[in-house]
């Protein structure tokens, strides 16, 4: 075979290969499109801006059923209820109030209803200095013990804020203590986290590779 001949054959083979490749690319035959995975939309519960619970003040605003707060439907006026304690000096929560879990503070120091509720008028609260405080104004009572937190809250640094940061543009939405904390058991329980980044997310995949 002459040198010329060989070159021609090689060129011909190359031409056939390139034509085939060109045909393949143009027709798109056997092309794998970038992997598309279905990422389900996040549950709207994670977009909810509602607070952890509803305070008495909030229920008043919503004109909700307030019969739970009508103490004298059962209790007798002017007759302070008698508290019962067990052998360990732990308060026995009566059956009528079984939804109340007494877990405010450590070492069981807060096992007395009348640390906060007013003994003489059950529909009011009472601070340690004897001031009577309405249920809807409970932060004053909370602040009588939790001074630094109250100070932070007043400045807007403790608790949630919403609405407008610019006071001239609109109202700032403030929450009160009991919008988030249950006064009888103030520690907020753990919750389910929203879904993490999907593995197709560049950040997540790098992290996953690194952990191997």
């Amino acid at each position: 075979m002459t040198k010329d001949n060989r070159t021609g054959t090689v060129l011909l083979v190359l031409a056939v290969v390139f034509s085939a490749l060109g045909l393949k690319f143009v027709s798109g035959f056997g092309t794998r499109l970038p992997a598309t995975r279905i990422i389900s939309l996040v549950d709207t519960q994670f977009l909810d801006t509602a607070t952890f619970r509803k305070s008495y003040a909030e229920l008043i605003r919503e004109k909700a059923d307030l019969s739970d707060f009508d103490c004298y439907a059962c209790h007798e006026k002017g007759k302070p209820p008698v508290l019962k304690f067990d052998a360990q000096q732990t308060l026995i929560v009566p059956k009528e109030h079984e939804d109340v879990v007494m877990k405010h503070g450590t070492h069981n120091r807060n096992n007395n209803c009348f640390n906060c509720h007013d003994e003489q008028n059950l529909e009011l609260l009472q601070a340690r200095d004897g001031r009577q405080i309405k249920l809807a104004e409970s932060p004053l009572l909370c602040g009588s013990c939790h001074g630094p937190t109250y100070r932070d809250w007043e400045a807007g640094a403790h608790g949630r804020t919403g609405g407008y940061w610019d006071r001239t543009a609109g109202p700032m939405k403030r929450q009160i203590c009991v919008d988030c904390h249950n006064p009888h058991s103030p520690k907020i329980p753990p919750r389910k986290p929203a879904p993490g980044p999907h593995l197709l997310h560049p950040v997540a995949s790098v992290a996953a590779e690194a952990s191997h």
Binding site: T49, H158, T161, G162, G163, D166, C180
Partner: peptide
């Protein structure tokens, strides 16, 4: 004049924003 979305949604009030 409004707060960012992440500030409004934070359930524990960990996010603070302002001037």
């Amino acid at each position: 004049g409004r707060y960012p979305a992440c500030v409004e949604v934070c359930p524990v009030g960990a996010r603070k924003f302002g001037n």
